[in-house]
Nucleic acid binder design. Structure first.
Ligand SMILES: [Mn+2]
Ligand SMILES: [Mn+2]
Ligand SMILES: [Zn+2]
Ligand SMILES: [Zn+2]
Lengths: 144, 144
DNA sequence: TGAGAACATGATAATCAATTTCAATTACCG
DNA sequence: CGGTAATTGAAATTGATTATCATGTTCTCA
C-alpha cells in the first residue's frame, strides 16, 4: 500500500527495532507532506490525526527516517530550526532561497555536480554528499 | 598600519558606534588568525593577550565584523558551533570537508559560480551569496 | 498463547551555543 | 571637563535538540 512505510518497516526489522503506532503515525504524516517541514510543525500536524504523540518521538522518528535514507535534514541560513523533506537519491536537488520573502525553488544542475566531482578529485577527495544553496532575490522581491 | 582595523574604525564611526579597547583587542587577534575559528576559541586566544575581555563581547564584536563585511561566519555540518574567518570578497572560496578527519580544503571554481548564476537567472533570481560545501573523504582517509 | 527481554514512549530535565538584561563603566562631542 | 549615548561583562534567558528514567509495548520463542 505505502512503499515508504514498507521501506521503513523493513529498516526497523533489519535493525531489531520495533514497529509502533507512533512511528507509523509520524512517518505517514511526514510522507504525505510535500516540501520542507520542521519537527515542531510535523508535531502539530501529527497531533491533529494522532493526538498524544510526543514531540520527542517526532524528533526520534525523523532521526530514524534519516538513518533509513527516507528523509533529509536541511538547515538553511538564518533558520534556527532544521527542516526535513523526503529523501530520494534519484531526486536529489539543491535550493535557491529568496533572502527577502523566503521563497524556495528547488533545482538540479548535473553539470555543476560533475564539476564538483572534478574539483574534489583534483584535491584527492571523493564526494559523498554536498550542500549548495544560492541566496538572492526572487523576481517579485527584486522589482518591488 | 593595519588596514582592517582602520576599516573597522571607519565602519564604527559611520554608524555612530565607539572604538573601544575591547573591540580593538578582539579584532586584532581575529585579523592575526588564519583559517576558521569559533567565538569560544577566539575568546581564549584574546584572553591571553588581553585578559578581562568577556565572551559576550567577543560574540558582539564578531557580529560587528560580519556587518562591516570583514568577517564571514560558516556553519559546517556536524559542527554545533559557528566558525569565523576573514572576509574578502575578492578572495571568495568554498570548502571541501573530510567527513572522517575533519580536514578542510578551500577552493574556488569560477565555472561553477558562473553556472550558479545561470541557474538562478533561469528561475528569475539574482544571486547575492551562496553556500557550497562538498563532504567526502580525503586521500589519507580513503586509503586507510 | 504468554512470559520475558528488549525496545519505545513521553514528561521532564539537561545541554549548549548564542542572545538578552541590566547596572556599572567608558567614549567622545562639544 | 560634563553629559549623553554607547559599551561592557556577569548572570540570566532563550530555543532547539538530546538525555533521563519510570512506565508501557512489541515481538520472540518456548
Ligand atoms: Mn528541497
Ligand atoms: Mn574558508
Ligand atoms: Zn522573494
Ligand atoms: Zn580525512
Amino acid at each position: 500500500m505505502n512503499k515508504r512505510i514498507a521501506d521503513l518497516n523493513r529498516y526497523l526489522a533489519d535493525k531489531g527495532l520495533k514497529i509502533t503506532r507512533q512511528r507509523e503515525a509520524v512517518a505517514q504524516v511526514f510522507f504525505d507532506t510535500d516540501g520542507h517541514i520542521s519537527a515542531e510543525e510535523l508535531y502539530v500536524k501529527v497531533s491533529r490525526s494522532y493526538p498524544g504523540v510526543g514531540l520527542t518521538t517526532v524528533y526520534r522518528t525523523l532521526k530514524l527516517l534519516k538513518e533509513a535514507g527516507l528523509a533529509k535534514e536541511r538547515r538553511f541560513a538564518e533558520d534556527s530550526q532544521g527542516v526535513f523533506e523526503k529523501e530520494d537519491t534519484a531526486r536529489h536537488h539543491d535550493h535557491l532561497i529568496c533572502i527577502r520573502c523566503g521563497k524556495i525553488v528547488e533545482f538540479k544542475e548535473p553539470l555543476i555536480e560533475k564539476l564538483q566531482d572534478e574539483v574534489a578529485q583534483r584535491h584527492g577527495f571523493s564526494v559523498e554528499d554536498h550542500k549548495m544553496e544560492l541566496y538572492g532575490l526572487c523576481s517579485s522581491c527584486r522589482t518591488a
